[in-house]
Write a protein that binds this DNA or RNA. Structure first.
Lengths: 191, 191
DNA sequence: GTCTATACGGCGATAGAC
DNA sequence: GTCTATCGCCGTATAGAC
């Protein structure tokens, strides 16, 4: 199956993006070279340019990957019966990554912070990594009947998760994020 | 006054560090070159190496500068009569920087996150940028009589500030940090 | 589509005159 | 202590054979 070039090409492109995402998360995008990405994905350096015209394009692909990651999670959460369960599932998703967060920070938050310090064209849209999930949270709170306060509550939840992620990273202690996650889930449950 | 070399040297060194700190805050340390720092401080490139053996040493100086910045704030806060006022002064310090935070994030938090992704030797001690202030907060809460919960309360405060800073950056809206700061000060006041 | 070889520029770092 | 000139490496990007 799928012996055609397009499929092979897509597979390689995906491997390149995966490698770039992993490396950008581990060591920051700025410090990630094309040689790093080529090595990690097993693609020869020169071939990278068949899939991406410039390094900047790879950065854009990394950003898109992370955005898509939330979009997919959002679809999974949509299957859950209540807004509270959906919100708690989001918290669980973050908490489930606690070990990584303690070493490399929140995948969305750290990428967002890094890209927003880059020249305008490149940074464009990086803020969405955190604001789009927050807007989704607000929708859930609306569904819970908190019309006027929905965006405040969403801000509070996303702030709590991001703050906890930052402190988890600085203290290098996953338990911290786990604990804050439990607290936030309790808060959601009690609303 | 101060015609001797040592003083001139110290002045130049300080200008170099100031430039490095500003550039690392604005565009990240990874993307900051020695040429950038030399240009911004008005020191010729070759002369930079009289003050710093390696680029890594400049990174260490930037980290030290930020650590010292808190140490100095801590001394100022010590003059305030009550723990609550000291804690609120800390919040005010962060909120007072809201316009910068909206563009470049928390000076401590973003540097901490960036350095902690670097090789071990370099990252060593970057976590202190957030954990040392948190430990100071805990001392204030102890003084308020919250012995057993002091570190939880400190974590909550620092988490709130860092989370608010991250969301302020991603939304590029200073008002967000101002609002969260007011909320946190109200919480402190009511303890 | 794939991969090797290489051009080109920029960056960290050094040499050495002043 | 100060500064110019420059070296060598590495990173992005391209040329061109297969």
């Amino acid at each position: 199956m799928a012996k055609d070039g397009k499929t092979a090409a897509r597979g390689k492109r995906e491997r390149l993006v995966s490698a770039a995402v992993a490396l950008a998360y581990r060591q920051g995008f700025a410090r990630t070279t094309l040689a790093d990405i080529a090595a990690e994905s097993g693609v020869p350096l020169g071939n990278v340019y068949y899939y991406f015209k410039t390094r900047e394009d790879i950065g854009a692909a990394v950003l898109d990957y992370r955005k898509d990651q939330f979009a997919q999670a959002r679809e999974r959460f949509a299957a859950l019966p209540s807004p509270k369960e959906r919100l708690k599932a989001f918290v669980d998703m973050t908490v489930g990554n606690a070990d990584n967060v303690a070493q490399k920070g929140c995948p969305m938050g750290t990428l967002c912070a890094e890209l927003l310090k880059m020249p305008d064209a490149f940074a464009e849209g990086a803020g969405a990594l955190l604001t789009v999930p927050m807007a989704w949270m607000a929708e859930q709170f609306v569904e819970l009947g908190y019309d006027s306060e929905a965006s405040d509550l969403a801000l509070k939840l996303q702030t709590g998760l991001q703050g906890a992620s930052m402190m988890t990273l600085s203290a290098r202690d996953p338990a911290l994020l786990v604990r804050e996650g439990e607290r936030l889930k309790g808060w959601i449950e009690g609303l």
